[in-house]
């Protein structure tokens, strides 16, 4: 404290200063009481030996003291502390709520008595290699059903899938397998799939098989499709099918379906959030 400031305080509150001294003398437990000879000298006012009382005189000027009186117990510091605590709690509860919601979504398909989506399958990929559900385990997979002769929705959705995949790869590389399963095995062989998917993303995995294998796959994923069983040579047709992205966890269990209502950004955020909460082992690929 500077000298003029002390003087101002003492002039303004002479009675309080006296009381201060008297109290010091009578308080045996106080640290300052051990040195009573100095405690009442005006010079010693600068020492901080009376925390309780001195708090009232921490103002350097009368104006400051007055303004403190006007504003009462509220100060901008208290206000800030209040707001920050409130914001912090709100943020915590909101994130926790979201986390619980995701957990519920992810676990709603685990265990007994839950709707089972997905399951074992054996198909061939766009290079002609056999792929089973075991090969996809250890990573999350994003499964989409479609066909190469699709007029409008599948190409749009596959472009979306490419954006989603890139965004997820950016945050958590090697944890997501993008899978395209054809609903039209009669026309979509490995060669056709390879050509078709290369235009969307080089990392897309195309799966095909016999009509019965694809039918079983679609049934396991609860996918509706309308491919004709018997196709005459040269006959053109369109396939009506479900248009969801199925997010499957590293154990091959269904997590969540992403649809047309999700933007690629929303969808990739949902996927990444689920991945971050995965506690089990992961088998990353380059």
């Amino acid at each position: 404290m500077s000298q003029p400031a002390i003087r101002a305080t003492m002039n303004a509150l002479p009675r309080a200063a006296t009381r201060q001294c008297l109290r010091t003398m009578s308080t045996a437990s106080n640290m300052a009481a051990k040195r009573p000879t100095t405690s009442c000298l005006p010079k010693s006012q600068t020492q901080t030996y009376q925390p309780l009382v001195q708090r009232r005189f921490k103002y350097k000027t009368v104006e400051e003291a007055k303004s403190r009186y006007r504003s009462g117990p509220f100060s901008w510091k208290a206000g800030m502390l209040f707001l920050m605590t409130g914001a912090g709690l709100l943020f915590y509860f909101e994130t926790e709520k979201e986390r619980m919601q995701r957990k519920r979504v992810a676990e709603s398909t685990k265990g007994v008595g839950r709707p089972k989506v997905g399951g074992p399958f054996k198909l061939i990929d766009h290079d002609g290699n056999t792929v089973t559900d075991e090969d996809l385990k250890g990573r999350y997979s994003l499964v989409y059903f479609g066909f190469t002769h699709c007029p409008d929705i599948c190409p749009e959705e596959l472009d979306k899938m490419a954006i989603m995949f890139d965004q997820v790869e950016e945050k958590l590389p090697g944890v997501l397998a993008p899978v395209f399963v054809t609903c039209d095995p009669a026309r979509d062989g490995p060669k056709e799939l390879k050509e078709y998917l290369a235009e969307f993303h080089p990392k897309f995995i195309g799966l095909t098989g016999t009509y019965d294998e694809i039918k079983a796959m679609c049934k396991a994923y609860r996918v509706y499709f309308s491919t004709p069983t018997e196709v005459k040579p040269g006959q053109d047709y369109l396939v009506d099918h479900s248009i969801y992205f199925y997010l499957m966890d590293p154990e091959g269990d269904f997590v969540e379906a992403l649809g047309r209502q999700h933007s690629p950004e929303q969808a990739s955020k949902i996927i990444v959030d689920h991945m971050k909460e995965w506690k089990g082992p992961l088998k990353k690929t380059a």
């Binding site: 002769h149 056709e192 050509e195 006959q235 053109d236 047709y237």
Partner: peptide, 16 residues
């Protein structure tokens, strides 16, 4: 046109 091959991205764009 006959549906024997699937159109490529450029061919799809032209159709659209």
């Amino acid at each position: 046109r006959s549906g024997a091959v699937a159109p490529s991205r450029a061919e799809r764009a032209r159709c659209w």
